[in-house]
Design a binder for these strands. Sequence first.
DNA 1: ACCTGAACACCGTTCAAGT
DNA 2: ACCTGAACACCGTTCAAGT
Lengths: 180, 180
Amino acid sequence: MSTYHHGDLRSALLHASGELLEEQGLANLSLREAARRAGVSHNAPYRHFPDRETLLAALAAEGFGMLGKALQGRTGREMGEAYVRFALEHPNRFRLMFGGQLQLDRHPALAAAADRTYEALAAAFRELPDPGKAAAAAWSLVHGLAHLLLDGHFASIRNREAFVRDVIGAVRYAAAQRSA
Amino acid sequence: MSTYHHGDLRSALLHASGELLEEQGLANLSLREAARRAGVSHNAPYRHFPDRETLLAALAAEGFGMLGKALQGRTGREMGEAYVRFALEHPNRFRLMFGGQLQLDRHPALAAAADRTYEALAAAFRELPDPGKAAAAAWSLVHGLAHLLLDGHFASIRNREAFVRDVIGAVRYAAAQRSA
DNA sequence: ACCTGAACACCGTTCAAGT
DNA sequence: ACCTGAACACCGTTCAAGT
């Protein structure tokens, strides 16, 4: 009844666990359920992933690709809004990517995917004074805003879109003043 | 050998699970292990907490109290630095508080504790134009910076303290320009 | 190579019972 | 009220075995 039995079990597992992640959240993503959805026995996944964490890292790397696409072609304020929008549209994926479950130094491919995303963001700040600091600040701003909105702080805000625009718009970047 | 048997099991459990959290991380914090450390059977905790999530919410609320103390008496740049420092000193506590495990609307006491922390932060922005937006931006900035540092992005930074100071110092707050 | 069933050591949670 | 042991339905992971 299926085509998953000669070579594409790996992608079948990624597909099934991606669905589980986005629908049910990380806590309800088990290797055994993913295997069930792919129609194989509960330890067939170990042929393709050494452990659960490595499968999660692959899902997170996918997520950085998705985020990169969402940022593509945008700059400045629009890019920031797209970043926050991605987090709100894929909350469980975003939390997997940035929830501290995965140590970047144990998953080099994941670290590389994250770096590529940051490069796209940093490229938009080349012309400012102290571009490294400004880019880091801009990333921190949209990243923190996304997290706080996801967590339900700012619950009293009526118009989320306008709020995100205004918060991003309230910030200017300057060279750091090295005071004392 | 212990004094935990008449009334203070609740605090004994909080103490044990707080240690487990900070030492081993959320994934290794089980009710059963906390019970073991408190010297009671594996389901004694259910006399004091209806489920694991409620215990986690209590630990997170404790965390907001700790964070509030860390911010106390500071303003502006110093307060931002203290926020980031708290996250770096208590990574697992910080991730529990802001990792999306806990739904604020299901834990009113936790939501209240979080609000108190935000109020302290917002109070520092009363004199700026558009103080609500500036405070939200400032919280987002230090919150995002803390998360990204914890996750190991910015791994190439040599001097973390100076980096945090400079990133926070690179930002100015202005009233939002409603463009278009 | 790829997949299987049985097994192990854990969980959170529930239940019937003891004091 | 507070605590207990037994039980249930899950996990991730390992192992010996089949094709």
